[in-house]
Design a protein around this nucleic acid. Structure first.
Length: 155
DNA sequence: GCCAACGTTGGC
DNA sequence: GCCAACGTTGGC
């Protein structure tokens, strides 16, 4: 199957690309997703897929770097943990609706590719993340959009 | 199954 | 901190 491209949002105060870089094997499970559309995207991911690592709700909003999908989606154990802020009653009953996927650090950009730049770059008009009101935390990205963002990150 | 109320996300 | 946009919940 062809490689797919994604964008995943996180608040760097909670989990940043620098945090991912410091993890053992530079890999971490992307858990805590509690939106069905986002979860469906997670389940569509395959090892080797690439993703844009997005920093949101912070000083420098935009693409902070790159990571790769390191494995298949599996049930998210935080949903079954009553002490977790991501706890979901349904998971305790044995039907965990939520998934997580391991992601591996690939690259930290020298500078975040800012939202404002994405908005004014030709070819990115259809990119989901620049659309008003788009809150989805896991989004598909087209190969064309991915390539354009990579170019913006150079220099 | 509709829809109002409410909660959350996230850019600004 | 504001608020628009969206998802979820729950009464009917």
């Amino acid at each position: 199957m062809a490689k797919k491209y994604w964008l995943m949002k996180t608040e760097p105060d909670v989990f940043s690309i620098q945090d991912l870089k410091k993890r053992p094997d530079q890999t971490e499970n992307w858990d805590g997703v509690r939106n069905f559309q986002a979860r469906n995207h997670i389940r569509d991911m395959s090892p080797g897929d690439e993703l844009l690592f997005w920093h949101s709700s912070c000083e420098n909003i935009g693409v902070a770097g790159l990571a790769t999908i390191a494995g298949k989606a599996v049930p998210d154990p935080t949903a079954a943990d009553p002490k977790s802020k991501y706890f979901d009653e349904r998971a305790r009953k044995g039907e965990n609706p939520w998934s997580m996927v391991p992601v591996k650090f690939k690259k930290e950009f020298k500078e975040v590719v800012p939202m404002a730049l994405l908005k004014e770059t030709p070819g990115l008009e259809g990119m989901l993340v620049v659309k008003k009101g788009m809150r989805l935390s896991v989004q598909p990205v087209t190969p064309e959009e991915f390539a354009i963002v990579l170019k913006l990150a150079k220099g």
